[in-house]
Amino acid sequence: MATGEAFSAEQLERLNRALDQAQKHSGIPFTVRVGALRGDVRLAAERILSTLVDNPDRDPAVLIVVSPGQCFVHVATTPAARKRVSNPAAGLAALTMTSSFSLGDLVGGLLTGLRQLGEAAGPAAAAVGTRSSTTDSHATHH
């Protein structure tokens, strides 16, 4: 650490709680990374996303990368998570976060961003339910 911790223990605790809540609500693993990115920032975010799950093509995962020095935030979703968190929903969450970040409130922005993404993904049980109901309707059609 060059200049001490970036966040206090209490702030990290709040972030962890918001993350857990979003994960529990949606059933999608969320990860937040705050730090500088090198090179192409979008590609860097995507590369980090690919290391978070066994099979990035099949497993859902949502990654939020924030680079305060570069004033950049990116919400990255795997193809499976993209079906739950659409690109417009991710864009809305990114907009929410940047409006807090521009006031210097990193923790508040991440908290609302996580909550919003969790809400956008919808409850885990409902997603399973819709899938089973569609298969049911298919079964009745046949």
Partner: peptide, 9 residues
């Protein structure tokens, strides 16, 4: 096929 969105401030 990954999705997402970016923002700057």
């Amino acid at each position: 096929g990954a999705g997402g969105a970016s923002g700057n401030w």
